[in-house]
């Protein structure tokens, strides 16, 4: 992987919200075709970090390089145009809207009618049905409301949406945290597929097993700082777990829980 240039380089990123320091100098590189797992406990700054990466937040200090040039996204739309797609923890799905309207939200297929940007419903419906079928979700029709889908299905819609829009970097914010076993393995298989297409995947999770299943490299965040990046095979699940929780406390907890954590 060393011969490739990273798609995104995050250099010493700091992000402060008022008096709260959410990120205190985090550096991460994302290469094409890798699945980079970002691990951390609740409040470690994972979400803030990926929001900075996807243009939602501006870093307080630090530099973000996109394909070798410094980038400065005004809003998520810019980042999306450049090829950074995000599947957010809060799903970015709107229950009252149909699956196909959700699928193309913010990326509407345009059919020109004079100067007017028409929403190309026919195309949207067709693509939505195709993509949903690939992911193993059977819809009654593309106009079915997202609200009728289960949490796992919604997540799958969100992921297949991001995949469909052919991003260079796909940021998945805890995509498996609300899923059942079968749907989780579906998602992990999708990550693998996407990675093989040469897309850089940033996979945020606090589940070490999910991370070990697909990750190429692992970066652990703890209290707004990185505790280093490890290669696949260079770290054991136990070590990752320890890093996430900050080590010692967990070690003692683990003793009392009989190694079940």
């Amino acid at each position: 992987m060393a011969d490739k240039t990273p798609i995104i380089q995050m250099k010493n990123i700091q992000k402060h919200f008022g008096s709260v320091i959410a990120l205190a100098g985090v550096s991460v590189d994302i290469f094409p075709g890798e699945c980079h797992c970002l691990l951390g406990d609740n409040g470690a700054g994972k979400s803030t970090f990926i929001k900075t990466m996807s243009g939602v937040h501006k870093p307080t200090s630090g530099e973000i390089m996109f394909e070798g040039t410094p980038m400065n996204f005004a809003d998520p739309r810019d980042a999306m145009t450049a090829g950074i797609a995000t599947v957010h923890q809060h799903l970015a799905m709107i229950p009252l809207m149909s699956v196909s309207r959700n699928f193309f939200m913010g990326n509407e297929p345009i059919k020109k009618f004079g100067p007017i940007n028409m929403f190309d419903h026919e195309y949207a419906n067709r693509v939505t049905m195709e993509e949903m079928k690939k992911m193993g979700i059977n819809l009654r029709g593309p106009d079915q409301a997202v609200g009728t889908l289960s949490g796992g299905e919604r997540q799958t819609v969100a992921i297949s949406r991001a995949v469909h829009f052919g991003a260079k970097v796909l940021i998945l914010d805890e995509p498996t945290s609300a899923l059942g076993v079968r749907q989780t393995s579906n998602v992990l298989a999708t990550i693998d597929k996407v990675r093989k297409q040469g897309v850089g995947v940033v996979f945020i999770t606090h589940n070490v097993r999910h991370a070990m299943a697909v990750g190429d490299r692992y970066t652990v965040l703890n209290r707004g700082k990185t505790l280093g990046t490890a290669e696949r095979g260079g770290i054991t699940p136990e070590e990752l777990q320890d890093l996430m929780a900050g080590g010692q406390e967990l070690a003692s907890l683990e003793g009392s829980l009989g190694g079940t954590v």
Binding site: P76, R77, H88, H90, A92, I94, G106, M118, F119
Partner: peptide, 25 residues
């Protein structure tokens, strides 16, 4: 119902945060 902007109207009212995250102005 027929335009891109219409989709944005639904999205903005349905969940402004989700819409923003998806790049809807």
């Amino acid at each position: 119902t027929k335009t891109q902007f219409g989709n944005w109207i639904f999205a903005s009212g349905g969940d402004a945060e989700a819409a923003r995250n998806s790049g809807v102005p």
